[in-house]
Each structure stands twice: as C-alpha cells, then as structure tokens.
Nucleic acid binder design. Structure first.
Length: 295
DNA sequence: AAATCGTGGGG
DNA sequence: TCCCCAAGATT
C-alpha cells in the first residue's frame, strides 16, 4: 500500500518528537508574523545567532504594523550583526505591505507570500507550512542535502533547481496537511543536526538503515565543484565595515569617520556608493552620512 | 543563471 | 590559520 521511502515519515517524525530543539518560533502559539520574521532572519544565518534577536523583535514589534511604524535606521540597528542587512529593509517593506494590504495578518497563500519583498520559494512555503499547516514542500539547503543522500544516494545535493527540488520533496510528503508540515520541519532538523554537511552523525540517524548513500557505500560527491565564497578583502567585507561604523554611532558621521574603516580609497568609495544605492545609507544635507531616516 | 550580498563559529 | 558553511533572495 503505502510506499516506504528511505525517508519514512514514521521514522523521521518519531525521531523529531524525541529530539526536536525547543525553538521559540516553533511554539504552537507563535503567530504567522513570528514565523515569517524567524524565516527571514534564518536565511543564511545560524539559529544560535538569530534566537536572541528574534526574541527582541517579537517583544518590540509583535505585529507587522508595529514594525512598519518604525524607522529604517531603527530596524537596521535592531538587526544588529545578523548579516545581509538588506533583509531587514525588505522585511520592513513586507511588514508595511502586510499592514496596509492584508489587514495586518501575514498571508497564508504561497503565491501571495511570493509577492512580498524578501520572500522567495523557500520562505513562502515555510510560512504556509509552519504557520498555517499547509501541505506544501519546504525545501532549504538541509532538505536538499538529506534528500540527496537518503533518496538519491549522493554525498551532497547538486546545483539547486527550484522546480526539481520541490517535485523531489512533494512525493515524500504525507497526505495529511498538518503531518506534512511537521514532516518538513523534521527533515530540516535532520539536516541541521544529524545529516550535516561536513561530518554527518550517521550513528544518530533515524533512517540509517534505509539511507541510499549508506547502501551505496558512501560514494564521494560527484557533482560540479561548488563556488567558494571569498570574504576577506571583498566589497562585502568593506560594506560591513562601513555599516558597522554607522551602527556604532548614535547619529550621522563624517566622511572621515567612514574613511577610517578601510584604507583602499577606490574600493571604499565604490562600496559607500553601493550602500547609498541600496538604501542602507543616506547622505545628510550637510554632507554627513547616516543610517536611513536618521539624518 | 551565475554573481552578489554579512558575519561569526567550528573543524 | 584558514576554510567551510549557515532555515536564500535578487538581479
């Protein structure tokens, strides 16, 4: 009758019931807004760094309209050093749209969510599933890796393809929506704490016996080489330095203060310009520089 | 569609 | 030390 895949829901969910981390956004009483904020913060940022900031945000801005009423600079300061600060501005813009166009309630429909700034294929489905219990595939880097190993017998996932990735997981989902949503959370947890990228803890895996990668003798990764993201010396580092100066100051700072953040003038100027273009920095009337809205 | 965009912890 | 990597989105 029921097809038993190498990622059997019974085994995965049973494991999840026992060991799931007690994260605040997993509280059954957590609102759709709380889930959305957590998902955006968790884009490329580890749980341990997100948790304290998320708690702060929920206490300060418990509904979308509350965040929408805050200034951009205030929001960027509260974002702190989570990284990729454009996410903070997009979340602020999403909150504004939700307050104005959706009655201050986070939409539950995937396509509507996809129309909000900063919400893509993963985040839209994560909100639909985790906040509203919908039966939609939720595919992040963890799920891609777990499926690559357990189902396809590969050491790691190849290049992402939204269409293929969603289809891969769709066929695994239990029929009942709430169970499907919890299954997605469990797959993510499995990838996050057991089936990790570098050194998987296979001895702790609930589907070890069924894992296609194990059965194939743990072949090495055969896909195309992954792009290594440099950081030291890149514009990303310089932009971070510049923004850090502005976050560390109570108000507008002089050009000289920003110049001290990086010694190569050409790169420094290029990065400052890009920050202005991105709306992460503004120039005041008297030639100072400030976080947006704080000049 | 490949490149870009922060930051910090751990192997 | 250095390098990998972490609940992606956007252009």
């Amino acid at each position: 009758m029921a097809t038993v895949s190498s990622l059997d829901p019974g085994a995965v969910l049973g494991w999840f019931d026992r060991v799931a981390r007690d994260l605040p956004w997993r509280d059954p009483d957590c609102t759709g807004w709380g889930v959305l904020v957590s998902e955006v913060m968790l884009q490329q940022t580890p749980v341990a760094r997100v948790e304290p900031i998320w708690l702060d945000w929920m206490a300060r801005w418990p509904v979308p309209s509350a965040l929408a009423a805050a200034g951009q600079g205030e929001v960027l300061r509260a974002w702190g050093k989570l990284g990729y600060p454009r996410r903070a501005l997009r979340l602020h813009a999403a909150a504004t749209a939700i307050a104005a166009e959706h009655g201050d309630v986070v939409p539950s429909d995937v396509d509507t969510l996809l129309g909000l700034p900063g919400i893509g294929a993963y985040t839209a489905r994560a909100v639909a599933a985790f906040a509203y219990g919908q039966r939609v595939p939720v595919v992040d880097t963890n799920v891609r890796r777990v499926v690559a190993r357990a189902v396809h017998g590969a050491a790691d996932a190849g290049p992402p393809s939204t269409t293929r990735d969603l289809a891969d997981v769709e066929v695994l989902l239990p029929r009942e929506p709430a169970r499907a949503a919890r299954y997605s959370a469990a797959l993510m947890e499995l990838g996050a704490v057991v089936c990790v990228a570098r050194t998987p803890r296979c001895a702790d895996c609930p589907v070890y016996a069924d894992c296609a990668w194990q059965r194939a003798g743990r072949p090495a990764y055969a896909g195309p080489a992954k792009v290594v993201q440099k950081f030291a010396g890149t514009d990303r580092q310089v932009r971070g330095r510049l923004l850090d100066v502005l976050r560390g100051a109570p108000g507008p700072v002089s050009r000289a203060a920003l110049d001290a953040a990086w010694d190569e003038p050409g790169q420094r100027d290029r990065c400052l310009h890009s920050l202005l273009v991105d709306g992460l920095v503004e120039q005041t009337d008297n030639g100072m520089f400030a976080l947006p809205g704080e000049g």
